[in-house]
């Protein structure tokens, strides 16, 4: 069991994702991971500040799961901010990470449209490959769907292609249709091999006030 969990963990799946894949509860996965962590706590880190003088005396101080980390501290960060947000991040050339928050008025609106209980609809991420396209919702090179758990607020999207640009929709799969309810900004995976011969030269840009057509950062928090 723990080997399977660790193997999935090494693919950077979240606890919720692992639980779903192995048919376990989130709590079971966390318990297994904690056990494994105690076992491996012999290893030592090298860089400065990474020594761990407290380890022998207080092994429980090194728990990683947020729930454990929060122990002994009055946790004041909210779980939700009451805003509709989705953010797509690039972890590596082949792995994306997406987090989101849906406010309950939006859930209510969606539920009233679908005439169903929001909690009971299958949620998912539709990942569009929009490389070199001005995406209008219908002109992606292709897309992939990831079904996510009811309680999930983030997901890793593995096995994406390097050197491509992606946009993610969070939405509902309902009666054979995908009903998007939040759309991310684009995220570009880095190409993980050398450029092809004959790529055009890069023109200098002197205006630092204006971002290039595609850049990594949001130009403002109001861009959707």
């Amino acid at each position: 069991m723990i080997d399977q969990i660790l193997q999935l963990r090494s693919q950077y799946l979240s606890t919720a994702q692992i639980a779903k894949q192995l048919g376990l509860s989130v709590g079971q996965v966390k318990y297994q991971l904690q056990k494994a962590r105690h076992a491996s706590s012999q290893e030592r880190a090298a860089a400065i500040g990474q020594e761990e003088p407290t380890r022998q005396e207080a092994p429980c101080m090194t728990q990683a799961d947020a729930g454990q980390e929060r122990r002994g501290r009055e946790w004041q960060l909210p779980d939700f901010y009451g805003e509709n947000v989705i953010r797509l991040m690039v972890q590596s050339p082949t792995v994306l990470y997406v987090y989101w928050e849906i406010t309950w008025p939006r859930m209510r609106m969606v539920a009233s449209y679908l005439q169903t209980d929001y909690r009971e609809v299958q949620k998912g991420i539709r990942l569009y490959d929009v490389t070199d396209r001005y995406f209008d919702g219908g002109n992606a090179h292709g897309w992939r769907d990831f079904l996510v758990g009811e309680d999930a607020h983030s997901w890793y999207l593995p096995e994406v292609q390097p050197g491509r640009t992606y946009i993610a929709d969070f939405g509902l799969f309902h009666q054979g249709r995908f009903c998007p309810i939040l759309r991310s900004e684009p995220a570009a995976t880095p190409r993980s091999w050398p450029a092809a011969w004959g790529e055009p030269l890069i023109e200098p840009v002197t205006d630092t006030g204006r971002p290039a057509w595609f850049e990594h950062f949001s130009y403002s928090f109001y861009t959707k």
Partner: peptide, 14 residues
């Protein structure tokens, strides 16, 4: 990520 002094790092962020 390194799993050392996690409590401190979580605390500082928090």
């Amino acid at each position: 990520d390194n799993q050392t002094m996690v409590d401190y790092a979580v605390g500082r962020t928090h």
